[in-house]
Design a protein around this nucleic acid. Structure first.
Lengths: 359, 359
DNA sequence: TGTGGCTCCGTAAACGTTTACGATAGAAGC
DNA sequence: GCTTCTATCGTAAACGTTTACGGAGCCACA
């Protein structure tokens, strides 16, 4: 009975997509039936479902996302909003690795991932509002949380599902995952102190960024706990990049009483610091003890190998996905629905050659 | 008369967004008027427009994207589809820099950018079909084109606006922008030949990837044009990463008659190659002449500085945006509408210290 | 025969917009 | 006063889905 239908593919304009209505007409069934067949509902006969699926495949039909999400109020998308402030942020391999794990987690869960970047001229808050208001995604992941972060208040107020990569003092009771900066500071200072260092500097980013503040604080605590003096001038805020590390090196080496050891809070800073030291003919580990941050391919190039910390970033990315899904009613697996995940992610010490006793 | 309306914000459920209907009711006007006021149409009085805008701002209304794009058939989004095949692809700074320029271009053009990554288990073609069929974006940018690329045929057939970052032998008449690999090969070989090299190896990626094929071909041509012998064994296909460069080094150094010079087609390979040479106590530039690819922060760390090529990747990203917009009827600026942009992007030579005469 | 249940499917409403069209009112021209 | 024009606004259809509801057909059972 295939010839009964007057429908012909050639009748259609090639540039507009096939709609469910046309597919239904082609099959001589109602659009409701087509929809039910495609969505795997049970109240459709096996024979009809087979015909529908075959026709959809043959004609290349796939549902229009706008229509679908308008009706269901669900987009099937997760958005990761990356900071586009510094130039380095884009290439920041921390985010890329987290992304890798997140993507793998979402895979097979019927959710797609989109990465959004604010324009260079737009601040993070304004961009978030725009994105959130348009409801492009069912859930948001925000990164580089600020100490006071209006994004969090906004998302909480609008009850938009989200998870933060990083803590904040804004809001409360929202899901977040963060690196255990306190532990890193404690362990780094402990190691350097046991090597005999007493003047230790730290390179952090702008203090509005939460982790920067947290780390500087934990650093001070760790010093005081050991009876070592804390000198605020040794907490130096530079750009979150290799150039920042270079500048940090310049400032530290120019001091009247330079520190004998430094701790870096970003994985790129070591690169710039090494560069600066090389200019002065200084050797990391011998002339200045350096404890870096996340281990990663770029810093692995450095000689001597940089002493640093490590955590499984892809696993963290997957955990971000879990935490987010738990807050989205439409997507939450029943066992975790509504659970608010707040986790400090441990970092493991990776011995290298860039630290040693003071000269 | 503000008290006339019985509408109160507190009446609304906090978790569902304000719709245009409610906003209209609150203002005692029709939804059509609200829509016209918000969209800047002229057939609405100044007074009404002012009231509407004020209320929208106060109540935090912003239009639902699904409804809007369902009606208009336009999403206001551009999607950049990145390859997620290799692990390195994500961190590939070439893409990140292109992205930076693209983002800046789209900024202020009322278009947003989303970056999409296929899942690790999904091939590029299947992923593209899914994304394209769902019409998440008004235009697509595909990268890492294959020599035979079914994605291009598919997009052409479905008449979905796109631009390719990279040429392909599939399809024709579609917009693309590509690096001028021919020129790079010619110049690299020319330089090495003039230094006296006769056995030159080249490291490229899998030959399905178009640029890999193009480069290998241009390399051969450049040799033959100078009367130098072409040895197919010296075209070595390795992974597109620093590990690939390491492997390339191993294979080259193990040859009975090793080449005296090499050309690399990826910006990371130099890193691995340097690593491998260091293991053997060999010095780049002295024991093996190396010409690398795109200049970038990672390879800038290497000593001796690697001789390579450079192009303004952010500008290329912006050009990709232009080329794409020209093919989207709804977004094309009138002066460029319908123009199909196909461009080879020149690369400039950056002298370094990693090449020199044969030993 | 009547009742109840099941399977399958069609009908139509709803999601939130935009926009073509028509309606109204006032102004302007004669 | 009649017509015409303009400015402003309301009405309703349309975009492509999903899904609640009900109806038709069939079978089983009392």
């Amino acid at each position: 009975m295939a010839g009964v239908s007057a429908y012909r593919v050639a009748d259609r304009e090639a540039d507009e997509a096939l709609s469910i209505r046309e597919l239904a007409r082609h099959l001589n069934v109602s659009i409701g039936t087509v929809s039910r067949a495609l969505n795997g509902r049970h109240d459709v006969s096996d024979e009809t479902r087979r015909r529908v699926l075959a026709a959809a495949d043959e004609l290349g039909y796939s549902p229009n996302q706008s229509g679908r999400s308008l009706r269901q109020g669900v987009t099937g998308m997760i958005a990761l909003i990356l900071p586009a402030s510094g130039k380095m942020a884009l290439a920041d391999t921390i985010f890329m690795k987290v992304l890798e794990g997140l993507r793998a987690f979402l895979d097979g869960r019927n959710l797609d991932l989109m990465v959004l970047l604010s324009g260079p001229g737009e601040n993070a808050y304004a961009y978030l509002r725009r994105v959130a208001a348009r409801r492009l995604a069912d859930g948001l992941i925000i990164a580089e949380t600020q100490r006071i972060d209006p994004r969090i208040d906004y998302l909480l107020e609008k009850e938009i599902p989200f998870v933060a990569f990083g803590r904040s003092e804004s809001g409360s009771g929202y899901p977040w995952i963060d690196l255990d900066f306190e532990h890193v500071a404690e362990e780094a200072v402990g190691r350097l102190a046991s090597l005999g260092h007493e003047r230790i500097a730290v390179a952090t980013a702008a203090s509005e960024i939460n982790y920067s503040y947290v780390f500087a604080n934990a650093f001070r605590e760790a010093l005081l706990r050991r009876g070592l003096p804390f000198d605020p001038h040794l907490v130096i805020r530079v750009d979150n990049s290799d150039d920042g590390g270079y500048e940090f090196g310049s400032r530290v080496l120019a001091m009247r009483r330079p520190p004998t050891a430094v701790v870096l809070v970003n994985e790129f800073m070591a690169i710039g610091l090494y560069r600066r030291m090389k200019e002065e003919g200084l050797i990391p580990g011998r002339d200045l003890a350096i404890v870096g941050f996340q281990e990663e391919p770029n810093s692995r190039l450095l000689t001597p190998r940089v002493t640093c910390f490590r955590t499984a970033l892809p696993a963290l990315g997957a955990r971000l996905g879990e935490a987010l899904l738990a807050t989205i009613p439409a997507h939450a697996p029943s066992e975790s629905a509504g659970r608010i995940i707040q986790e400090l992610w441990p970092m493991e010490f990776v011995p290298g050659e860039s630290d040693g006793p003071p000269r």
